[in-house]
Design a protein around this nucleic acid. Structure first.
Length: 481
RNA sequence: GGCCCGUUGGUCAAGCGGUCAAGACGCGGCCCUCUCACGGCUGAAACAAGGGUUCGAUUCCCUUACGGGUCACCA
């Protein structure tokens, strides 16, 4: 049988990291076994409707490579794929259940339901429906219906025995049927509840693996009983532990946690984000950590999924991001950073290709760029203490001597390139009988005006050019004199 | 509160009765080196607690603790 999974997000206006991970796993479960990955938009919560939100979903799936095989935008044989367009069909299914004696009409008012609630010491109220309307006769029901009384349709749960279902991640879970409430299937407004719509949709779309957050674990017995009531085959359940911000809280956009697009905006690569979240709750059979989406499709197995929550660690993501940047083929990397460099480097005569090369091994995120290249445009104000470096064995005096000696050497260079600069400066070092660092550190400092810089004296000189190099060295000499 | 689930270093995690309890991030040290970064080497750091079962428990069972989830005419 062909595996079919679905991603069923609500259009909220952004892609939550936890949702993206769910989508990833759904995609991988299907794709690792040659199955189909379906997109279904659950837009029935009108209160939360956000303009353009579905575009964000399409766009994210496209960016991440989680391409769906069926969905609202591309169609398929199991449509419609937008839940609001499916609204007409649910009542009919609920009525089938009423017919079979698996569900029943309920005319209870909200007030009556409210009166059923029992509060405990903490003040929290709990209620289980008392089945007041279960005993209504056909005539009474018809009379109420004719009178236009508002009603809901409830699922009739078994009162004895237990229900067991097997979750692929959590194993067998058993609950007492007496714990189960007669949940509402159709609301008074005629629309289905989420739980009911889900079961019907998943069945009609022939979803074989229902993948969702572990918060649904406790309602799954009810789902299973619904399938059973219909006489349908229940899907495989794959419940996923949550992605946490810390030990106590789930990641949530509302509490300031970053969404997928926030991370992209902050200079994280899409591939790195996908790779990182794949490992948040799943691990391969070996120790591999860097995976392309293609490799994930090959290596993913449901058995590698974990049961306990994982805390989102931005530091590890950042490391992984830098790995992706470092290992990128240079031309591809250059295309990626070019726009940001063009914006960050104001001096247009500078070779941003060379600057990019210097940065490739030093970037953690793309947003590091401006901070790292700032000094190329303008020499920062700095104090002469920067010239003193213990390990380089420099003092202000040595630095001054070195810089003065460097000037004529630099002036003598006509063919300005890294190799020539290197050879001339090294020759000077030998001539002066100094340590490399005693000459090069002062030059690097004079050129950057920073305690650290991406690249050493020679690389910086090459990029800055002869004229600017001499100018900055002169500034250094002046400061030190 | 009832029910369900979870618990290996700070974090991600391997483990599926016998291991010196992997690996990665982060942190410390050393090396490389014209700074930083990269790279290489290296160090500190964990089985929530108590009972069983067993020749032997991180691994199986029970209890406790602590976390989380769920008990809507919300999704």
């Amino acid at each position: 049988m062909e595996i079919r999974t679905r991603f069923a997000p609500s259009p909220t206006g952004y892609m939550h990291i936890g949702n993206l991970r769910t989508a990833l796993y759904e995609f991988l479960i299907a794709k690792s076994q040659g199955g189909k990955f379906i997109l279904r938009i659950e837009d029935t919560d009108q209160e939360r409707y956000v303009e353009g939100a579905t575009e964000i979903i399409y766009n994210t799936l496209k960016m991440t490579g989680l391409t769906h095989d069926e969905g609202p935008d591309i169609g398929g044989d199991y449509g419609p794929y937008v839940q609001s367009e499916r609204m007409g069909m649910y009542l009919e299914y609920a009525l089938q259940l009423v017919e079979k004696g698996e569900a029943y009409y309920c005319f209870c008012t909200k007030e009556r339901l409210e009166s059923l609630k029992v509060s405990n010491k903490e003040g929290t109220a709990f209620a289980k429906y008392d089945r007041h309307c279960l005993s209504l006769s056909k005539e009474e029901i018809q009379k109420n219906l004719d009178a236009g009384m508002p009603y809901v349709i409830r699922q009739k749960m078994p009162t004895e025995g237990t229900t067991t279902f097997s979750d692929v991640v959590y194993g067998d879970i058993t609950v007492e049927n007496s714990e189960l409430d007669d949940q509402i299937l159709i609301k008074a407004d005629g629309f289905p509840t989420y739980n009911f719509a889900n079961v019907v949709d998943d069945h009609l779309m022939e979803i074989t693996h229902v993948v969702r957050g572990s918060e649904y674990l406790s309602s799954t017995p009810k789902y299973n009983l619904l399938y059973k009531a219909f006489g349908w085959t229940a899907p495989e359940y794959v419940h996923l532990p949550p992605v946490m911000r810390d030990a106590h809280h789930k990641l949530s956009k509302r509490h300031g946690d970053k969404s997928f697009e926030d991370l992209v905006r902050e200079g994280y690569l899409v591939e790195a984000i996908v790779n990182y979240i794949a490992l948040l709750g799943w691990s391969p059979s070996d120790n591999q950590e860097i995976f392309s989406l293609e490799e994930l499709k090959e290596k993913f197995t449901i058995s590698g999924l974990s049961k306990s929550p994982s805390i989102f660690d931005i530091k590890k993501l950042t490391w992984m991001n830098s790995e992706y940047i470092k290992n990128m083929e240079f031309e591809k990397y250059f295309e990626l950073v070019k726009p940001r460099l063009e914006e960050a480097v104001k001096t247009k005569t500078l070779d941003i290709r060379k600057i990019a090369a210097l940065l490739q091994k030093r970037l953690e995120t793309l947003n590091d760029i401006p901070r790292l290249v700032d000094f190329f445009d303008t020499l920062p104000k700095y104090g002469t203490e920067l010239y003193v470096h213990k390990k380089m064995k420099t003092t202000e005096e040595i630095a001054l001597t070195a810089l003065k000696a460097v000037v004529p050497v630099i002036e003598s260079i006509d063919d300005w390139n890294e190799e020539v600069i290197h050879d001339k400066l090294m020759a000077l070092v030998t001539e002066l009988g100094m340590k490399n660092g005693q000459v090069l550190w002062p030059v690097r400092t004079a050129l950057s005006g920073e305690p650290t810089s991406p690249g050493g004296a020679i690389e910086l000189a090459d990029i800055l050019g002869k004229e600017e190099t001499l100018r900055r060295i002169a500034v250094g000499i002046e400061k030190l004199s």
